[in-house]
Every structure is written in structure tokens, then in C-alpha cells.
């Protein structure tokens, strides 16, 4: 393992074998770029003609996927959208137009849940992703023990949300939790009920997941490994400092992966349920409730139509986020 200390090797130089592979990819990419628009058109997939005799088998082959997609996505999707306009409690069913939405928009708890959901999403976007990117970039420098660090950072990501919530409920326990013990040892008041005080509850919940950065770190490290080392070598020759290489080469080339990480995190967070449910059940006074939890409460009450109306809002929010983040980060467009 080579220590990336010299400016000629670039600040984020991948190991030799990876660098060779990246150089090969970069060479290919360079040719394509140099070829201009005509070449881009040539690379666009215009569709493959299926031989006449194969159309039947191909159609049959697609059928399982279509059935599964229809059964587990399309049908629930249409049920959700349709019953959002109904009073459906299991025992009765009646179309009620927009009543569910009127009730939702008149309910202050809905706004609290909506605000909390956005808060958690924002915490991911502005804390978790930047932190993950920063750590990923540092680990890509291959400092001593980076493999161990990467594993340690990734482990929380593979722990189930429910188990994680239980661990944190013990951590925050005001009587016996580690946090208050540490706070108390520092000479500060060590009896705060972090999860059931309206001033701290939301932050305490957010703090349980914003530091789970393993997913972003791994994503960033994988992307950095694919950046051609020639870029850094050229920049070094031109006199660029390590910081300049980091901010003007690496970061811009991470645009796609940062956008993807943000999108994934946002979509996970707008449906956040298990963590909040186990930690606080949405309390105190709905200070930590999310839209998913709000929908769940309605579902528990047998108000399935209302729960689905809330679900449709989550769905709409997800669509807005997908479109916005894709546009802002131009996800899918080549960085080079």
C-alpha cells in the first residue's frame, strides 16, 4: 500500500491495479468525449429487435416480472390512491371525495408529522451525507488502518433499525443510560430525559441515524477509486495543491454519487417509522412523529382510507424529491 503523500500521485490516488483499470476506463471515456455529439448518439441504446420467432418466449419470460410488479406494486399503488378518497375502516366503505385530505390539512398533528419528516430528511441531507462524503474522501487516501475504520463505520448500517433503536433507547435512558452518565461525569446535570422532553426529543432521534454514514462512505470510496489518476497527475504538473485537487477534481466528479446518496437517504427518511416508533412512539406531544407513524396510527384505528391518504402524501413527497434531486445533481449524466 502506497502512502499518498506526494503531490504527483494526487490526493486520492487509488492503488496501482485500480489505477490501471481506471486509466483504461478513462481512456475509453476520453475517446467518447472527444468524438463529440455524434459519438454520444452512437452510444445511445436505440432498442434491440427481437427475432420474430423469439417474441413469444420473450413475452412469456417477461410475464413473471410483470405479474410480480403488478401484484406487489401496481395493485397496492392503485388501492392506495383510490382508497385515499374513501372512508374505509375494514367494516365499511364509502367514497367521500376529498374529505380525508381536508381532515388531514386541518389537523395540526399532520403538520407536526410533516415538519418532523422534513427535519429528519434535512438532517440526513445536511449532516449525514456531507459527513459520509468527508469521511469517504479521507478513507480514500488510504490512511493507516483505513480498512478497519471502513468496517467499523459500515457495521451500524447493517444492524436492523429496530435493534439500533433499542440500543439507543438504552443509551438515552435518563436513569441508567450512558449519555447521562457521561454528561454527569463532566459535572453537568445528568438527569435529562432526552427522548421525552419536547425540546430535545427530535434532535435525540435525529442523532441516532445521522452518524450512520457507512453507506455514503462506501459509495464515495467506490466512486473515488474509479477516478482516473491521470487527472491528478495532470493537475500536479499544473501546480495544483492537494486541496485544490480535492475540491476541483474529486468533489465535482462525486456529484453523481452524492446526488444518489442524498436521494436514497431522503427516500428512506420520508418513510421513517421503526426508529421513531421504538424510541418515542411519536411523542412527547407528537414532537417526534413522522408521516409514516401518523399513517400507522390511523391504520391502527381502522381508518384505512385516511391512512392511505397520508400515504399518498408521502408518495407525492417522494416523487417531488426524486425529480428535484435528479435535476439538481444531474444524476445519470456523465461526470467526465
Amino acid at each position: 500500500m502506497s502512502a499518498p503523500t506526494t503531490s504527483t500521485s494526487g490526493p486520492l490516488r487509488p492503488p496501482d491495479d485500480e489505477r490501471r483499470a481506471a486509466a483504461g476506463r478513462a481512456a475509453g471515456a476520453g475517446k467518447a468525449t472527444a468524438a463529440g455529439p455524434a459519438n454520444r448518439t452512437a452510444r445511445r441504446v436505440v432498442g434491440t429487435k427481437i427475432p420474430r420467432g423469439m417474441r413469444g418466449p420473450v413475452a412469456v419470460s417477461l410475464l413473471p416480472g410483470i405479474i410480480l410488479f403488478g401484484t406487489f406494486f401496481l395493485v397496492p399503488f392503485f388501492v392506495l390512491v383510490a382508497t385515499a378518497f374513501a372512508r374505509w375502516g375494514g367494516l365499511d366503505f364509502a367514497w367521500i371525495g376529498l374529505d380525508n385530505y381536508r381532515r388531514m390539512f386541518d389537523d395540526p398533528v399532520f403538520y407536526k408529522a410533516f415538519g418532523n419528516t422534513l427535519f429528519y430528511a434535512a438532517a440526513s441531507m445536511f449532516i449525514q451525507v456531507p459527513l459520509g462524503v468527508a469521511v469517504g474522501m479521507v478513507l480514500a487516501l488510504r490512511p493507516r488502518g483505513w480498512r478497519t475504520l471502513r468496517t467499523i463505520i459500515f457495521v451500524p448500517f447493517v444492524i436492523s433499525g429496530a435493534a439500533y433503536a433499542v440500543i439507543f433507547s438504552m443509551f438515552y435512558n435518563p436513569r441508567s443510560g450512558l449519555l447521562n452518565n457521561v454528561v454527569g461525569a463532566l459535572g453537568l446535570p445528568g438527569d435529562r430525559d432526552w427522548l421525552f422532553d419536547t425540546t430535545t426529543a427530535r434532535w435525540a432521534v435525529a442523532a441516532t441515524f445521522v452518524f450512520i454514514i457507512g453507506f455514503v462512505v462506501v459509495l464515495v470510496m467506490a466512486e473515488i477509486a474509479s477516478i482516473p489518476s491521470e487527472l491528478y497527475e495532470a493537475a500536479s504538473v499544473d501546480g495544483a495543491t492537494t486541496w485544490q485537487q480535492l475540491t476541483r477534481i474529486t468533489l465535482p466528479l462525486l456529484r453523481n454519487v452524492i446526488g444518489t446518496a442524498i436521494l436514497v437517504r431522503l427516500l428512506v427518511d420520508i418513510g421513517m417509522f421503526d426508529l421513531v416508533f421504538i424510541l418515542t412512539a411519536g411523542g412527547p406531544d407528537d414532537a417526534t412523529a413522522t408521516l409514516a407513524l401518523y399513517a400507522y396510527r390511523a391504520y391502527l384505528n381502522g381508518e384505512w382510507g385516511y391512512a392511505n391518504a397520508v400515504g399518498s402524501v408521502i408518495l407525492a413527497l417522494g416523487l417531488v424529491l426524486i425529480v428535484t434531486v435528479r435535476r439538481v445533481f444531474r444524476i445519470g449524466e456523465r461526470a467526465l
Partner: peptide, 20 residues
């Protein structure tokens, strides 16, 4: 009411802490 437990757990801490 069947919803008593959920409502209690949600409101009781805030009430005890003087927020209502």
C-alpha cells in the same frame, strides 16, 4: 376508548413537564 394508550403515552410526558 381503545386509543387511550397511544394518546396517553404521547401527551403525558409533555403534561408532566409543564407544557400544557
Amino acid at each position: 376508548p381503545a386509543g387511550f394508550g397511544t394518546a396517553w403515552k404521547n401527551l403525558w410526558p409533555a403534561y408532566v413537564k409543564g407544557e400544557m
